[in-house]
Simulated scan of single mutants.
Amino acid sequence: MGLISSTPMLEKARSEGFGIVAFNVHSLDMIYAVVEAADEVKAPVILQTTVGSVKSLGAENIVAAAEKASNQYNVPVALHLDHCTEYSVIVQCIRAGYTSVMIDASMHPFEENVRKTNQVMEIAKHLDINVEAELGKVGGVEDDIVVSDEDAQKAVPAECVEFIKRTKVPTLAPAIGTAHGIYKGEPDIDFIRIQEIAHLVEVPLVLHGGSAIPDEDVKRCVSLGMAKMNVSTELKNAYSAAIRNHFIETPEALDPRQYLSKAKNAAKDLAQSKITLVGCAGKATEIQEYEKEKHSNPIMAN
């Protein structure tokens, strides 16, 4: 069916209390691993890439592979640019065919974050793409963005309201205590803060740092309004560990088709477990119908 904006799938997820998983993919075959996993459980899915992956693989190549996969399998697929601080890269990805972008200006003061987000919204409002922005600072490492534990800051609920009012951004990632990467201890998730923000704003919320959060905590976040959960490190680790284990067990087996097949299967298994966890397995047709209805109804589209 081709790539679609993540806006309708996330709106539907938020309104019905389930989540959509956004998987960071770092190679073209990881794209197919994720989409095949989604197809097998009939779920909508979001592919996302870091700026580093865009510079490594090329935006046009990523879009071509994602479009090919989305046309091959009958599930809703969106393509998202994750944590981008560079306006020029956002424009490049939009022109290439990305259907969702994140402008991350969370490291700046509130007013500058509003300004930079509105700069992207000026483009997006004329196109059928989603825009995600962040308030507060999610700790950890994401590509070349490093936020120490000391610098991590949770989003202020009242600022979330003001930010959405002034930017009209359709998706918001509030910092609520999660971190990028694998946790050293138990994640300190502020569930009360999620509930407060979700009560004050209607837009879908995004859970960053979704790797290795305990299952029950993920379910609680989704039930409170987190409609999108980002998974990067766990997927990358599963994929890479399968290759490492292949060479530990069979060091002379150098055929890439063997070890890449194992890596792909490991990524698929991980993707399916996360998709099932957030409750979107079996939701593909529902999302497809909502997306078509929204495009055919001018009032819903606005």
Rank of each mutant, 00 (worst) to 15 (best):
I194H: 11
A271W: 04
I4G: 06
I287Q: 02
A152Y: 11
I182A: 03
L47C: 05
L224F: 04
T50L: 00
M9H: 11
H83M: 03
M300I: 13
V51I: 00
S56Y: 12
A212H: 05
A155D: 10
A271P: 01
N130F: 03
Q153R: 15
E40A: 09
L224H: 02
G17Y: 14
V231F: 13
M30D: 14
K292F: 06
S211M: 09
H180Y: 06
S88M: 04
H80Y: 00
C280F: 13
L277T: 06
N71V: 07
D144I: 06
S27H: 12
K264M: 10
K12H: 15
D188H: 15
T167W: 08
D149Q: 15
Y290S: 10
N74A: 12
E11Q: 14
H208F: 06
L127E: 10
P44N: 08
F110R: 08
E291N: 11
E111D: 14
H246F: 12
G58K: 00
I299Y: 10
R220S: 03
N118V: 08
G181C: 09
P204V: 02
K12W: 13
E134A: 01
C221I: 04
E216V: 13
F163T: 02
H208W: 03
R95I: 01
K262N: 12
N245C: 06
P298G: 09
H246V: 12
C160M: 06
I248G: 07
T233S: 14
G139K: 03
L127M: 11
S261A: 11
S70V: 01
D82C: 04
A242I: 15
T50K: 00
Q48N: 10
P157L: 04
A155K: 14
E67F: 07
Y87W: 04
A43F: 02
A38V: 05
E150G: 13
E134Q: 13
A301M: 15
I275E: 02
M229G: 08
S240G: 15
A22H: 00
C93P: 00
D39Y: 12
Y32L: 12
P157S: 13
L254C: 09
L260V: 08
R95L: 07
D269R: 15
A175Q: 03
D143T: 05
N265L: 12
H246N: 10
V278A: 06
G139I: 02
A175E: 08
Q48I: 01
Y98H: 06
H108F: 07
L260M: 13
H108N: 11
I299L: 14
S261C: 09
T233F: 05
M300D: 09
S70C: 05
E134W: 12
P298M: 14
R193C: 14
T285V: 13
K137P: 09
N245I: 10
Y290G: 10
